[in-house]
Design a protein around this nucleic acid. Sequence first.
RNA 1: GCUGAGGUGGCGGAGCGGUCAAUCGCAAGAGACUGUAAAUCUCUCGUCCGGAAGGACUACUCAGGUUCGAAUCCUGACCUCAGCA
Length: 367
Amino acid sequence: MAQQFFKSRNGNIPLPVFFPDATRAVVRSIDTSDLEETKTTGILVNTFHLWRELGPAMMKKFAGIGNFMGWGGGIISDSGGFQVMSVVKSGAMKGKVTDEGVIFYPARNRKVVLTPEESIRFQMSLKTDMVVVLDDFTDPGVGREKAEESVERTITWAIRSKDEFLRICKKEKLSKKDRPYILGVVQGGRFQDLRKYCAESLVKIGFDGFGYGGWPMTEKGKFDFDSAKTIAESAPENYFLYGLGVGKPDDITACARLGYNIFDCVLPTRDARHGRLYVYNFKSIAEIDLTKPNFYSFYNPLGEKHFSDDSPVSSACDCLLCTKYSKAYLAHLFRVGDFTAGRLATIHNLRFYSILMEKLREALDRK
RNA sequence: GCUGAGGUGGCGGAGCGGUCAAUCGCAAGAGACUGUAAAUCUCUCGUCCGGAAGGACUACUCAGGUUCGAAUCCUGACCUCAGCA
């Protein structure tokens, strides 16, 4: 029996869910009212960014990130492990991974150390519904030895994270009912035995679920289903299976069939701002059938052929954009570079994803 | 009408004798984006052939001229803008 609900501060959220990324306590270009309108049930915020930009004092003052940003839906906080890859390896900031934790050098004379304990401590101050342990991201395409190293470190950090989590729960007298979920992260790259070993080690430590960590794509850009499957097969009953950074509608659909029930990804929101809208290839929401091979396609509002098109972007959508505005108007907004273009596109894409999750839920209920 | 400044590819705007099919920006077209350094990035962008390298052709308002060679210099025509009448 799989998990049926994601328990949030304000009630149960039916699974599976897709939580868009509100890395810096905002889903870029829209506010929480917009977010509610898209029928999005939860979001993901990031420890690394909020830790540096807001800090624990602010979280104490506002009694959590949900209050701070006026969001009553579900909230998961990511650990900051991914930022070693996204921030450091992309060259934005110097940094390195040691056994102690992740060290960042935001400026020449400044050093910040994010340890597994600090990550958990700060996440507890965020008062999110699920905290994620700091993990050592396995660089994609890395050799066996490096992959083993990152797995070992991920496991060691998971133990330290769990200890810190229990210590805080005890100190704050949080009962099992009141405390947030805690999620382990499975690393190991493309080495299936490492994935399995990592997952089994995490189960022994004791978590509410685990995430498919690392980079979920092969070099060719194809989704790495082997790892997804290995992880899913290592999960005990009633576990959360979280595809971190997953992803494309087809990959989500496929993973949901493997038992994954939580997803987050920047794709719908970033794509929206970049002028890529997701559109179901059906006439109405009722007709949407996810088992059809090409159940959706992309719509790019820019392009002269749309400049005078008075039809809506999609008839299989009930978002603000599709119910109120024409393709021509959206094209105009993108052309003149107004923020409203990004806002409407983001609202649309998030509604696409919330419909996707509704349909997946229906399909799983029928089973 | 006089005086001055100009007329360059879809647009703006460089170049001011050879290395120019012409910097750059915009527009246009194509692609990327996956636990967010991203309202970003990459590529194409005179025509034709080629996957590319490359080649062929037509080009910097028009018509002449100077020169081995002109978008660049000279003459004239046409047009635009600014100032003065």
